[in-house]
Amino acid sequence: MTNDMTGPDNGRKPGDAPDKEGRLKAEEGPVSAEIALPELLAGLERLDRAYDDEAGPPPLGMLQARLIAASERHRRRALREWLLFWLVSLFILGFSLLAITSAPPVYWTVQGLVPIAGIIAAAMRPGRKGRGERR
């Protein structure tokens, strides 16, 4: 199957369809549209042509084998992480139960600090990984 889906969304979704020339002229105006852009588009077309063979998709069986190998790796990694999580958790659980009984002030101080630390960490690392929604 040589199904070369060129263009985002195979040109089916209005918002995403690449409609190069049209949009470009509408938004760029006469000043900036000079020579650079048409030349760039032509150059990129040529680049696409030169790499047509390389861009051909690998056979389905090969892709499938690759996916299976990757998901196996992924599964094993997730399992290891899960085990590590339980190991650490049991320690933490033990400590916190111990803290509630023998040193409540320490326990509640830590409990107060955790959300604060979380908020500080989220603020320091804005973007995708923030705790809660940062965007």
Partner: peptide, 27 residues
């Protein structure tokens, strides 16, 4: 469904590779 997944990626492979080729300029 792994077969559907592989098929899906096969369909989009060229598009993805060509995009990355232009974005990276490094085959």
């Amino acid at each position: 469904d792994r077969l559907a997944l592989a098929q899906l990626f096969q369909n989009h492979y060229s598009f993805l590779y060509k995009y990355l080729l232009k974005a990276t300029m490094d085959p």
